[in-house]
Design a protein around this nucleic acid. Structure first.
Lengths: 108, 108
DNA sequence: CGGAACTTACGAAGTTCATCGTAATAGAAC
DNA sequence: GTTCTATTACGATGAACTTCGTAAGTTCCG
């Protein structure tokens, strides 16, 4: 995975990560749920996630997560599977993502 | 310090800390600045902090930080000095506070 | 080519939030 | 007791955010 031949949607690089944007992204409960689900399944599209909001809203949240640097989104036909940027986040904000995931219950 | 004879304003206990409330509290740039300043000076009142907002606004932010469990506020005459709940936050969300503080520049 | 499926951009509605000024409260000092 | 200072509660205002429905753009497949 992480095939370099894949095409990706625009996203900030490691040095461009802003702690304010990341925290604001993770402050929303739906987005934390997305993060938790991606942590479990590895990769998912907006429509494949089981969330209590409409797909267009999930797409909006995924965009915020991507632009803040929390997730990467790959182009695969009409699908846009996203995954966590776990290693990069860990390097930039050690412990942050892990604490949040382990503190986010499945029913939040 | 942390004299048990002191009186404190109401605050959630360790098990009552909600990751959503903490992240929402730390998502605001002014509140992150307060956290950074408290990390430096140890304890401070609303009026003693050098911030680009009015004191009444600082009081509002300090209340949010206190109710989310990020700071403790002690009663000392008319003053209400607050300090970080560093150890408790570290036990509940390991690495979170440190990552945020080190990623929050003095001019944010 | 034509249609179906997936995603997102856009506009709108309702809510939440940051900020301020003012007023009220509580302690300290005289 | 009175006055002064420090803090906070309250109301208002304007911005930002979440959510939705709809429409538009892409890709895949008969």
């Amino acid at each position: 995975m992480t095939d370099t031949t894949d095409t990706w949607l625009p996203q900030p690089d490691l040095t461009g990560l802003d702690v304010g944007a990341v925290l604001q992204a993770l402050a929303d409960p739906v987005r934390r749920q997305i993060v938790r689900l991606l942590d479990e399944c590895g990769e998912a599209t907006c429509s494949s996630l089981d969330l209590p909001v409409k797909v267009s809203t999930v797409s909006h949240h995924m965009k915020i997560l991507r632009e803040s640097g929390v997730v990467s989104t790959r182009l695969d036909g009409t699908a846009r599977p996203s995954r966590l940027r776990r290693d990069e986040l860990e390097r930039r904000f050690p412990g942050l993502l892990g604490s949040i995931i382990s503190a986010t219950p499945p029913t939040a």
